[in-house]
Amino acid sequence: MADEGKRDTEAMLNGWRVLVVEDEALIALDLRNMLEGFGCTVVGPVATVENAVEATERDRPEAALLDEVLGEASVAPVAEELRRRGIPYAVVSGYSASPAGDPALREAPRLSKPVAVSDLWNLLAGLRRGATAA
């Protein structure tokens, strides 16, 4: 029975377009490798707020993983754009709580860096289930 549930989740994530917004190259690469291992199609990674908003418009991701701070800039405008478009997202951050205090970031699902494969898997499965239920 557990194998059947895992296969359903694998099928759910296969081909799912996930935008990665991360300004640290090694973390971005690690996230991309994990996502590709789950069968996801990775959009990006992108390292700036401007590029992330453009990718949201141009590449039409189905979900997004957001580093909370890109250089000195908050990723809140990206979260607002994703929220406006109805695209589920989560924050992947070194901060345990949102330093910006922006509701779009504070209320989002959150993973701490470094990201464990199982935690990312569970997060994505939850986002996907929520996206299909909407």
Results as ranks from 00 to 15, higher is better:
Met1Pro: 07
Ala2Lys: 09
Asp3Phe: 00
Glu4Lys: 12
Glu4Asn: 08
Gly5Tyr: 14
Gly5Glu: 15
Gly5His: 15
Lys6Thr: 14
Arg7Cys: 03
Arg7Tyr: 10
Asp8His: 07
Asp8Met: 08
Thr9Tyr: 03
Leu13Thr: 07
Leu13Met: 09
Leu13Lys: 05
Leu13Asp: 07
Gly15Met: 08
Gly15Val: 07
Val18Asn: 01
Val20Cys: 05
Val21Ala: 09
Glu22Phe: 10
Asp23Leu: 08
Glu24Met: 10
Ala25Glu: 12
Leu26Gln: 14
Leu29Met: 14
Leu29Ile: 12
Asp30Arg: 13
Met34Asp: 02
Leu35Met: 14
Glu36His: 03
Glu36Asn: 01
Gly39Leu: 12
Cys40Lys: 08
Thr41Val: 06
Val43Asp: 00
Val43Gln: 02
Pro45Lys: 08
Val46Asp: 11
Ala47Arg: 11
Ala47Trp: 01
Thr48His: 06
Glu50Thr: 11
Asn51Gly: 08
Ala52Lys: 14
Glu54Cys: 01
Ala55Phe: 01
Ala55Pro: 04
Thr56Glu: 14
Glu57Gly: 06
Asp59Glu: 15
Arg60His: 13
Arg60Gln: 14
Arg60Ser: 13
Glu62Val: 07
Ala63Val: 03
Ala64Met: 07
Leu65Ala: 08
Leu66Tyr: 03
Asp67Ile: 00
Asp67Arg: 05
Glu68Gly: 13
Glu68His: 13
Val69Lys: 08
Leu70Gly: 14
Gly71Ser: 13
Ser74Met: 02
Ser74His: 02
Val75Asp: 00
Val75Asn: 02
Val75Ile: 10
Val75Tyr: 00
Ala76Glu: 15
Ala76Ile: 02
Val78Glu: 13
Val78Tyr: 11
Ala79Asp: 06
Ala79Phe: 02
Ala79Ile: 05
Glu80Thr: 06
Glu80Cys: 01
Glu81Ile: 03
Leu82Gln: 06
Arg83Ile: 01
Arg84Cys: 01
Arg84Met: 03
Ile87Arg: 02
Pro88Cys: 09
Tyr89Leu: 09
Ala90Leu: 12
Ala90Gln: 09
Ala90Phe: 11
Val92Tyr: 01
Ser93Gly: 06
Ser93Thr: 10
Gly94Arg: 14
Tyr95Trp: 10
Ser98Ala: 10
Ser98Leu: 02
Ala100Val: 07
Ala100Asp: 03
Pro103Gln: 03
Pro103Cys: 07
Ala104His: 04
Leu105Tyr: 04
Glu107Asn: 14
Ala108Val: 11
Ala108Tyr: 12
Pro109Lys: 11
Pro109Ser: 11
Arg110Phe: 03
Leu111Val: 03
Leu111Ile: 02
Lys113Val: 01
Pro114Asp: 13
Val115Cys: 05
Val117Ile: 07
Val117Ser: 09
Ser118His: 06
Ser118Pro: 00
Ser118Arg: 11
Asp119Asn: 15
Trp121Arg: 15
Asn122Lys: 10
Leu124Lys: 00
Ala125Met: 03
Gly126Ser: 09
Gly126Leu: 04
Leu127Lys: 12
Leu127Ala: 15
Arg129Asp: 08
Arg129Ser: 10
Ala131Tyr: 02
Thr132Pro: 00
Thr132Val: 03
Thr132Phe: 00
Ala133Trp: 08
Ala134His: 12
Ala134Ser: 14
